[in-house]
C-alpha cells in the first residue's frame, strides 16, 4: 500500500502517506499511524524507497519518500502476486456445487 501510494502520488511525506491510506481504505483501516515509520525505514533499508529532507506544503521541514526503480519492480511483482491470489480466492467463492463436473 505504501509503495502504491508513492507510485500514484509521487514523493510524499509520512503524514501524507498515512492520510492517503486512511482515505482510500475509507477509514476502515485505522491503525496507529506511528507504526508507519519503522515500516518506511525497513523499505528504505531494502532499497525500495529513498528519502530526503524537503519542505512541506506549509513550509515545514519534512522527510519525503520516493519510489526507486527497485521499488517499482517490487510493486509490480507484488501487484501481480496479489492479483493472482485474489483471483484464485474470488473463484473459490464464485464456484457453486452444480458447476463442478
Amino acid at each position: 500500500m505504501v509503495l502504491k501510494t508513492l507510485d500514484v502520488l509521487g514523493p510524499q511525506h509520512g503524514y501524507g502517506i498515512a492520510r492517503r491510506i486512511e482515505q482510500i481504505s475509507g477509514d476502515i483501516l485505522a491503525l496507529n499511524q506511528g507504526t508507519l515509520y519503522p515500516l518506511l525505514l525497513k523499505l528504505e533499508h531494502e532499497g525500495s524507497i529513498v528519502s530526503q529532507w524537503g519542505a512541506s506544503e506549509n513550509n515545514r521541514r519534512a522527510r519525503f519518500y520516493r519510489l526507486t526503480v527497485t521499488g517499482r519492480k517490487q510493486l509490480q511483482t507484488e501487484t501481480r502476486d496479489w492479483n493472482q491470489t485474489a483471483a484464485i480466492i474470488a473463484r473459490f467463492f464464485e464456484v457453486k456445487a452444480e458447476d463442478l463436473p
Binding site: 511525506h13 509520512g14 503524514y15 498515512a18 499511524q33 506511528g34 515509520y37 512541506s56 515545514r60 521541514r61 519534512a62 522527510r63
Partner: peptide, 12 residues
C-alpha cells in the same frame, strides 16, 4: 524519527 513524528503531529 522525532522530527518526523513532530511534523506528523503538527499536520494532524
Amino acid at each position: 524519527l522525532q522530527e518526523e513524528m513532530a511534523e506528523h503531529l503538527a499536520l494532524q
